[in-house]
């Protein structure tokens, strides 16, 4: 269980809203993600003081400033490194990392691989607009091949990556895709991510009206469909059927399994190392340096 659960309703979505006004462009998909996060936090009932939202750099990485919990807007690509430190040092906290496709898949791609592999008990929301927004419209790892951007005058020469497929192959234990234009469903997904025990990876298609135009939103909305009810998310092969889609965009929890998380494993090491004894004093440690001859 990644988040603290309470049975009675303790918080309203507005309790998580900070005084800071988002810098996002009107119509930005990230507004939907932010709303969904407020609502999901309230539904799960996590205490703001026991929650940390961390990010890297990018439009979407401004999000921690808009949430009234502890927050950290770090440097480009390193949200998950900060989250690793917070969660491992203080396992009882609810830790959420957020960012965009450039931040998480290009400059920070290596950290995503290892957070998945470790099954770090963190929720990672990747707001995917298939473009670099803050730096004004360059190609990203999720930009479709052939697309013209500010940095691909002749069209994008590179194939794109499917973030969900990547996360699954690296060992994430909860992988979902959402759409910022379907708020009701997105709230459920964020809630599910917060409640998952282990690394929860939520890829939210979050259109960029400024650099991808109205077409991106329209096209995503048209292609959107929801996973069939009989989808068995415990089998990776089933989940992989919904990756690398071009004609449709399937939202839902693609993959979900329960395995020991990084915190579980480190706690078990600690139990073994301490073996019911109090922590040694500095003198105890120093005495081990007297040669035993």
């Amino acid at each position: 269980m990644n988040a603290t659960t309470v049975t009675d309703i303790k918080f309203k979505p507005g309790d998580y809203k900070s005084d800071l006004k988002p810098v996002w462009c009107p119509g930005c998909g990230d507004f939907g993600v932010l709303s969904a996060l407020y609502r999901a936090l309230a539904k799960v009932g996590v205490e703001p003081e026991n929650t940390v939202v961390l990010s890297g750099i990018g439009c979407s990485s401004r999000l921690p400033g808009y949430v009234k919990t502890y927050g950290f807007n770090g440097v480009h690509g390193r949200a998950l490194t900060l989250a690793t430190g917070v969660k491992v040092a203080r396992p009882e906290l609810t830790v959420i990392a957020v960012g965009g496709d450039g931040d998480g898949l290009a400059i920070g791609g290596n950290h995503l691989m290892h957070a998945c592999r470790r099954n770090l008990d963190v929720t990672y929301i990747l707001m995917d607009n298939e473009i670099y927004g803050l730096t004004k419209g360059q190609v990203a790892p999720t930009t479709p091949t052939g697309d013209k951007t500010k940095s691909t005058f002749w069209g994008n020469p590179e194939p794109s990556v499917d973030p969900c497929e990547l996360a699954m192959s690296c060992g994430a234990t909860w992988v979902a895709r959402g759409f910022s234009g379907d708020l009701k469903f997105l709230v459920e997904l964020v809630e599910g991510a917060l409640r998952h025990h282990g690394f929860a990876f939520l890829n939210v298609m979050s259109p960029c009206v400024t650099w991808r135009g109205d077409d991106q939103f329209k096209s995503m909305k048209e292609k959107l469909r929801t996973l069939p009810e009989d989808h068995d998310p415990t089998r990776r092969a089933n989940a992989l059927a919904y990756t690398r889609e071009t004609e449709v965009l399937t939202q839902g929890v693609l993959y979900e399994v329960e395995t020991p998380s990084m915190v579980d494993r480190l706690e078990s090491i600690k139990q073994r190392a301490m073996n019911g004894r109090p922590a040694p004093s500095t003198r105890d440690i120093l005495e081990t340096f007297i040669p035993k001859v």
Binding site: Y70, G74, T81, A89, N110, H114, K270
Partner: peptide, 22 residues
């Protein structure tokens, strides 16, 4: 707790995260 991270970028990031967390 101790983590052998994937690189030095992650090491210093985790240290800043841990320290931020108190």
């Amino acid at each position: 707790y101790l983590v052998q991270t994937e690189d030095e970028l992650s090491a210093i990031g985790a240290v800043i995260g841990g320290s931020f967390a108190g």
